[in-house]
Amino acid sequence: MPSLLNVSSSPHIRTDDSVPRIMWTVVIALVPTCAYSVYLFGWYTLALILVCVATAVITEAAIQWWRKVPVTVSDGSAVVMGMLVACNIPPCITWWIPVIGTFVGMAIAKHCFGGLGYNIFNPALIGRAFILAAYPKDMTTWKIVGTAAKVDATTTATPLMMLKEHGYPYLIEHFGGDKWALYKDLFIGNVGGCIGETSALLILVGAGIMLARKVITLYIPLSYLGTLALLTFVFKGDPLFAILAGGVMLGAWFMATDMVTSPVTKKGQVIFGAGCGLLTFIIRTYGGYPEGTSYAILLMNATVPLIDRFFTNRVLGTK
């Protein structure tokens, strides 16, 4: 790649001043939810987050050094990727499983495609999907090690797993027979789940930080969560539970909004979000997995080139 002349098609971000600003903002936005998970699940969780970040940074540096291209780990994108993998794994998983996931996501989903700005799929989600397919049991076991755990009986299964296996009435009964108690626990984060997805409140705090710094826009998250809630309502489910439970909050605000792997235009972004919502609903309701956020976003990532092609803004003076 000649260093003087960078010719590339438009939505790609090149390494320039704005990339570190964006990426470090996302890192800061992820800190509250990660810190809360460490408080909930203990120091092992912190170790997991650090292991993921270290793997991401080392993998990226090694590949860039090997390819003899500038090493760009200081722009923060590798740190974000590592943190997002950590956010998508159970808080007590054996440590080398996320290492494999982070490595695969970083090496294959990002650097085989040319690095930042060129990847088609969200690297962190590829990492998660890869280890979910390789070690399905580990990725869906929520046993808490040590005594630092602050969440009690609810940690053996996530609310979505209870819904899938035992149905809605059981779920409500489990949370004391009151659905507002369930909402409150989900909102505050008094439930089991992946490292980054327990507390909807802290994810919203992170989202607020990103919105304030204009790192993300509202089109994708709102159309994603709106479509999911609407579909759940139409098919007689609990819409508020649907958007609060599981990884959909994390996915909608932090992963679907990744600007490299989402459409360029507003219209495209709304369609992208709606597609994520539809697929999440289908996989949750009819599929084999209790949660479908990561697959929904990955599948919609694959459609982005087509969405961009068919939902471009009209160029002035053309039809």
């Binding site: 590829i126 599929g287 990955l298 990532n301």
Partner: peptide, 17 residues
């Protein structure tokens, strides 16, 4: 091929449908 592999991983989300 690698893209097809990543698409195949994504399509695993439909398992059990």
């Amino acid at each position: 091929f690698i893209t097809a592999g990543l698409l195949a991983i994504s399509f695993m989300g439909f398992l059990g449908l």
